[in-house]
Simulated assay, not measured.
Amino acid sequence: MTDAELAAFLAQEAGRMLLVLQQSGQYSGKDLGDEGDRIANDFLMGMLRMRRGSDGMLCEEEKDNLRRLDAERVWIIDPLDGTREFSEGRGDWAVHVALAVKGEPVVGAVALPGLGLLLRSDLPIWVPPAPERLRMVVSRSRPAAEAMAVASALDAEVIPMGSAGAKAMAVVRGEADIYLHSGGQFEWDSCAPVAVALAHGLHASRIDGSPLVYNQQDTYLPDLLICRRDHADTVLETLARVHPA
């Protein structure tokens, strides 16, 4: 099984397990979110240790092992991206499985179980053209000031949505055109979505235009821009104008 096939299998199976749990009625609220985090983490990390035990690993739900910094290949995992949405019974949550090689996100799979979808870096789909009026996805609970300012300047439609993976994949799927986030994230929030977005020919960078680099000692990676390549310069220039550093 190739790295990409493994990432897709793991994301899909963890997503299936989570969907069964969400629909079971056995847990609710915070208990549902906690149990979802636990079972997805146990499955994903157990399988990775069995299948790719010599690789480095970074996972939201596990204590960071800094030996990963000496590894060329590092799996970066978010077992349940959007725990709040999952615990509320919503569909805008995701499972992220990514492989970074020398800091670059080269393999990614993002499962959107609530939508019955799996997006993969090795099997890109067609990205529909953007409409005349652009659409920007933002956090449904904490829309970033920078994103709202850019949306206003571009007269873009604002679409509130849950998890980072769901927002990034909305751009890949053609349901949105820009995902600009500046409210704080970690490497596991964006690595798999960025790998998938890049494989689909999209632009992905920090909001100052610099590259996204993974497997760093400090896993905080606070901002992100995913959009079509032909919109990237406009978005970055608009951001610099309305929200100068």
Rank of each mutant, 00 (worst) to 15 (best):
Leu58Ala: 04
Arg73Gly: 07
Pro244Thr: 06
Gly25Thr: 10
Lys63Val: 14
Arg16Met: 04
Phe43Pro: 01
Pro160Val: 07
Ser152Lys: 13
His200Cys: 13
Leu21Gln: 06
Ala195Ser: 03
Pro113Trp: 00
Val107Asn: 06
Leu239Gly: 05
Val106Gln: 14
Arg206Trp: 14
Leu69Met: 07
Thr2Leu: 05
Pro244Ile: 03
Gly46His: 08
Asp122Glu: 10
Leu48Asp: 01
Gly36Asp: 00
Glu187Asp: 06
Val138Tyr: 08
Asn41Val: 10
Arg38Trp: 04
Ala168Leu: 06
Ala40Ser: 14
Leu80Arg: 14
Tyr179Thr: 00
Gly46Lys: 07
Gly29Arg: 09
Pro113Asp: 05
Glu61Lys: 04
Leu6Arg: 09
Arg84Pro: 00
Leu198Arg: 07
Ser163Asn: 08
Ile76His: 04
Ser139Phe: 05
Ala147Lys: 06
Val172Met: 00
Pro113Phe: 03
Ser141Asn: 06
Ala176Met: 06
Arg133Phe: 05
Ala166Ser: 15
Glu88His: 12
Gln12Thr: 11
Phe43Ile: 05
Asp70Met: 12
Ala145Phe: 07
Ala232Arg: 01
His203Met: 10
Ser121Tyr: 01
Met169Trp: 01
Arg73Met: 08
Trp75Leu: 02
Arg49Val: 05
Ala109Thr: 09
Asn215Val: 13
Gly183Cys: 02
Leu198Ala: 07
Ala156Met: 10
Leu10Lys: 00
Gly33Met: 02
Ala232Tyr: 03
Gln22Ala: 14
Asp122Met: 02
Gly36Pro: 00
Arg68Lys: 10
Leu48Val: 09
Thr2Val: 05
Ala100Ile: 08
Arg206Asn: 13
